[in-house]
Simulated assay, not measured.
Amino acid sequence: MYIKQLYYEGIEEGAFPYNLPFIKDINNLLFTKPITFITGENGVGKSTFLEAIAELLGLNLEGGSKNNHFSTRETHSDLTKSCRLIRYAYYAKDYYFYRAESFYNLTTDLDDLGVSSDLFDRSLHSFSRGQSIKALVQERFFGQGIYLFDEPETGLSLQSQLELMLMINDLVKADSQFIICTHSPIQLVFQEANILEMTDEGAKNISLEESQIIKQWEMVFNRKNHFFHQLFNS
């Protein structure tokens, strides 16, 4: 374990990102297990929260390690001006930020830097989206690291998500810590993981059974005929 908390020291109110609901609860959110999943509806601040951690670690905000410096557009918030990281006693040897929405840009940067040729013997753009993500994790993530994922399930089939979970599990055994924003119910089933749920009311740690993602998918599959009848006839 390397990161214990994103600690908020600010008093800003009103403007984005300080009006996001999780701000009032942020100092109660602790990373106590090697894997923490962050869930919630679109717009509640999951990516903003993760992005702040990435920036405080010195990582490229469109994805990558400390060696990636590309930027296509400045869109990140200034939350880090009011936050600091509280760490455990150990220091990581590897750092990486994967975010689905800018992975194409990261892939281009890795190809241009020659990293793809060194690690994969071919351009990452020559892989499918799902293949390239798995190749990146398998060949570039070295262990003893802090790894931030923003929606890693994007572009992955169920089989590929399960394969990714096995890779994550191996990296946890190699003394790594993961903080993962996700909409995938499959990812949440990971044993021995914290689940942090963000809503319009705030943020808190929850159990798998309390997760809105799990409840919603159960509703769709267990009552699909009634659900879709109500959806299209409301």
Score class of each variant (00 low, 15 high):
residue 191 Q to D: 07
residue 105 N to C: 14
residue 180 I to S: 01
residue 115 V to Q: 03
residue 171 L to Q: 01
residue 118 D to M: 01
residue 153 E to H: 08
residue 171 L to W: 02
residue 113 L to Q: 08
residue 193 A to N: 13
residue 199 T to R: 07
residue 158 L to A: 12
residue 112 D to Y: 12
residue 145 G to K: 05
residue 204 K to Q: 11
residue 123 S to D: 04
residue 175 D to S: 13
residue 131 Q to I: 09
residue 175 D to F: 11
residue 102 S to W: 06
residue 149 F to V: 03
residue 172 V to H: 03
residue 213 I to M: 14
residue 129 R to Y: 14
residue 118 D to C: 07
residue 154 T to E: 01
residue 117 S to G: 04
residue 117 S to P: 01
residue 177 Q to T: 02
residue 122 R to F: 00
residue 197 E to Q: 06
residue 132 S to V: 09
residue 199 T to K: 13
residue 185 P to A: 15
residue 211 S to T: 04
residue 122 R to S: 04
residue 131 Q to E: 10
residue 166 L to W: 05
residue 162 L to C: 13
residue 185 P to T: 06
residue 193 A to R: 09
residue 155 G to Y: 10
residue 202 G to R: 13
residue 163 E to L: 14
residue 157 S to V: 14
residue 123 S to C: 08
residue 158 L to T: 04
residue 213 I to F: 13
residue 156 L to I: 06
residue 148 L to Q: 02
residue 140 R to E: 06
residue 103 F to W: 05
residue 218 E to V: 08
residue 175 D to N: 03
residue 144 Q to M: 14
residue 207 S to R: 12
residue 163 E to H: 15
residue 181 C to F: 03
residue 108 T to Q: 11
residue 182 T to G: 04
residue 198 M to W: 08
residue 108 T to F: 12
residue 168 I to W: 07
residue 163 E to G: 11
residue 160 S to Q: 08
residue 126 S to T: 05
residue 129 R to P: 12
residue 215 K to Q: 02
residue 134 K to E: 06
residue 204 K to I: 05
residue 122 R to T: 00
residue 189 V to T: 10
residue 185 P to V: 11
residue 200 D to C: 14
residue 128 S to V: 04
residue 138 Q to I: 08
residue 200 D to N: 12
residue 123 S to T: 07
residue 164 L to Y: 08
residue 217 W to T: 03
residue 203 A to L: 12
residue 180 I to N: 02
residue 147 Y to V: 04
residue 175 D to A: 07
residue 182 T to M: 09
residue 130 G to D: 03
residue 192 E to K: 15
residue 202 G to I: 12
residue 130 G to A: 11
residue 213 I to W: 09
residue 206 I to M: 09
residue 111 D to R: 01
residue 173 K to Y: 01
residue 152 P to K: 12
residue 192 E to I: 06
residue 152 P to M: 03
residue 157 S to P: 09
residue 104 Y to W: 05
residue 192 E to Q: 11
residue 211 S to G: 04
residue 116 S to W: 05
residue 123 S to I: 03
residue 143 G to Q: 11
residue 124 L to I: 01
residue 125 H to A: 08
residue 143 G to W: 14
residue 176 S to V: 00
residue 111 D to E: 10
residue 213 I to L: 15
residue 126 S to Y: 09
residue 175 D to H: 04
residue 168 I to F: 11
residue 124 L to C: 10
residue 119 L to R: 04
residue 120 F to S: 00
residue 129 R to S: 08
residue 197 E to R: 09
residue 190 F to R: 00
residue 176 S to C: 01
residue 202 G to E: 09
residue 177 Q to A: 02
residue 211 S to Q: 02
residue 170 D to N: 09
residue 183 H to E: 00
residue 175 D to R: 04
residue 179 I to Y: 11
residue 203 A to H: 12
residue 173 K to L: 15
